[in-house]
């Protein structure tokens, strides 16, 4: 149906500009009626966190996110998808991840963006390590069971 949709996936250390990414996805098109964006930011954990260190598996990170985006395109009538995930040292208040989903009508864009984030959380090969404000290493962030449950809810549909 919409086999022509090629998701844009970028894994980068640099920050991203949400407005520029929306413009890039919608530029020159008049068929898109809805754009949903999700931006994930680094929290300061009540002032205790100085930075997150994001490690990733180069090559697989791009490939796995592209596979997840392909599943979203197969499930919903999406007009376009952009996923950007940062790696390296990220400070509280800074961006970590961006998902943009575009479609003719809003529901596909909402569902597509939500599905992408849920799957990305449990399947994209990224790991977060905490650095504390007092200079100590906070250790690796544990995977949350709630993220697994969030991803699993799409399986029954």
């Amino acid at each position: 149906m919409n086999a022509a949709v090629v998701p844009m996936v970028r894994i980068q250390a640099a920050d991203f500009d949400v407005a520029a990414e929306i413009a890039r996805l919608t530029q020159g098109r008049a068929d898109i009626g809805a754009v949903v964006t999700f931006t994930g930011l680094c929290r300061d954990e009540q002032g205790s966190l100085s930075a997150l260190e994001l490690e990733h598996y180069p090559g697989m990170a791009e490939a796995e996110i592209a596979r997840i985006a392909g599943e979203a395109i197969a499930r919903w009538p999406l007009s376009g998808i952009t996923v950007i995930h940062r790696f390296g040292r990220i400070r509280p208040g800074e961006n970590i991840v961006l998902v943009v989903a575009a479609s003719t009508h809003r529901q596909a864009a909402f569902d597509g963006a939500s599905f992408l984030m849920d799957y990305l959380k449990s399947r994209a090969p990224f790991w977060k390590k905490e650095h504390r404000i007092d200079g100590s290493e906070g250790g690796w962030v544990d995977a949350r069971e709630s993220d697994e449950i969030a991803a699993a809810r799409w399986a029954g549909q």
């Binding site: 995930h85 970590i96 959380k121 399947r123 090969p125 790991w127 995977a143």
Partner: peptide, 10 residues
């Protein structure tokens, strides 16, 4: 073959 803990991206 890559070995790693459960993922915590996003």
């Amino acid at each position: 073959i890559a070995l790693f803990p459960p993922m915590t991206g996003g």
